[in-house]
């Protein structure tokens, strides 16, 4: 499988009070056609920044190093025309808050068909037929009526379905979903994720799912990357992250989820505050919160190493693997 989306040593610096601070610290990740990859992490870990960097909508004045390649073409080397084509046919993004991300004064029909008509040259009649089919596929009731409705007339769940339909309408190669179901209730969430998953398999889409929900990533994605302070701490099959974590941070995250087997016991928490990449000290950024930290951890930044089929940015992975494994399990 060749990678349709490749993020290679991506570094993003933002101007903070006149000085450039690194918000993404050399992130590498690949997604192949038909593959679903999750990026999980706490708030401020840089996962949304990564999504914005992939589609080249970073804040003004950002500096970017490394590369983002779509089908072997660097997104940051594209001219305006290529970039516009990439965005309107190659990649689609699903946002967390559909209400804020849809123009409130345009009808749903306009929103769904505008790209097709103006950027892909589809005839209005055909565009309408296509979006009606897609709305049915994402289980929107009375799709003909919806086309004439406005965003404020639809519920959040319905609007997110509309946004998924809009993403699918352009027949992209990659779908970038930034916490697509965080604002929705649990039943709607699972329905929507099922729809996305079906479409991914049917159309051979690459899905990059940004979420803070480890269970969701395990349910939907083949591989998961765990981000912390603008770095990828661990990457591996979603299953192995749960059962056989390689990094203390992953193990701690897994242990802090509520589990039915632990019913009645206090949830474990990770001590301290999450750091953003900007605040991270020298060495491993997780040191202040890590119970396995030793002096060597502070000395230099650990680089991701291949450890039984996955990557871990921890120098002690081999020493503490057994302890990590027991940490996430129900006691």
């Amino acid at each position: 499988m060749s990678a349709v989306l490749e993020i290679a040593d991506l570094r993003v610096s933002l101007p903070v009070d006149g000085q450039y601070r690194e918000a993404l610290h050399g992130v590498s990740l690949t997604v192949a056609a038909g593959e679903a990859v999750a990026v999980v992490g706490e708030s401020g870990s840089g996962k949304s920044m990564m999504a914005r960097a992939v589609i080249r909508v970073l804040p003004n004045g950002s500096r970017v190093g490394g590369a983002v390649r779509f089908k072997d073409e660097d997104v940051y080397q594209m001219n305006g025309r290529r970039l516009s084509a990439f965005r309107s046919t190659g990649i689609a993004m699903i946002f967390q808050d559909p209400r804020a991300h849809i123009n409130p004064v345009r009808s749903i029909g306009d929103f769904l068909t505008e790209v097709l008509i103006t950027k892909q040259g589809v005839k209005p009649v055909d565009a309408r037929r296509k979006v009606l089919r897609l709305l049915r596929e994402v289980d929107v009731s009375r799709p003909e009526d919806r086309l004439h409705q406005y965003p404020h007339e639809l519920s959040g769940g319905l609007l997110q379905r509309v946004m998924i339909a809009a993403a699918l309408a352009i027949e992209p190669k990659v779908i970038l979903a930034d916490e697509p179901t965080t604002a929705l209730d649990v039943t709607t969430q699972s329905e929507l994720m099922c729809i996305l998953d079906e479409r991914r398999q049917a159309d051979d889409l690459a899905l990059l799912l940004i979420t803070h929900d480890l269970d969701l990533s395990a349910a939907v994605c083949d591989r998961t990357a765990v981000m912390y302070a603008g770095r990828i701490m661990e990457e591996g099959s979603s299953r192995s992250l749960h059962d056989q974590p390689r990094h203390p941070y992953t193990a701690a995250l897994a242990a802090s989820r509520p589990q039915i087997a632990n019913n009645g016991r206090r949830l474990s928490v990770i001590q301290g505050q999450p750091l953003s990449a900007i605040e991270a000290p020298l060495g491993c950024p997780f040191v202040p919160r890590c119970k396995y930290a030793i002096a060597a951890c502070r000395a230099s930044e650990p680089l991701p190493k291949v450890i039984d089929g996955g990557l871990s940015a921890c120098i002690r992975t081999n020493d503490i693997r057994a302890q990590l494994r027991s940490e996430g399990q129900p006691a």
Partner: peptide, 26 residues
């Protein structure tokens, strides 16, 4: 600065199209 404008940029629309067709009506 509202998110829907960013979302339109992500869809590949030009600044001119977004300004005339989406920003002005708002």
């Amino acid at each position: 600065r509202l998110p829907y404008i960013v979302a339109l940029e992500v869809q590949g629309f030009s600044a001119w199209t977004i300004a005339v067709r989406h920003l002005v009506p708002n």
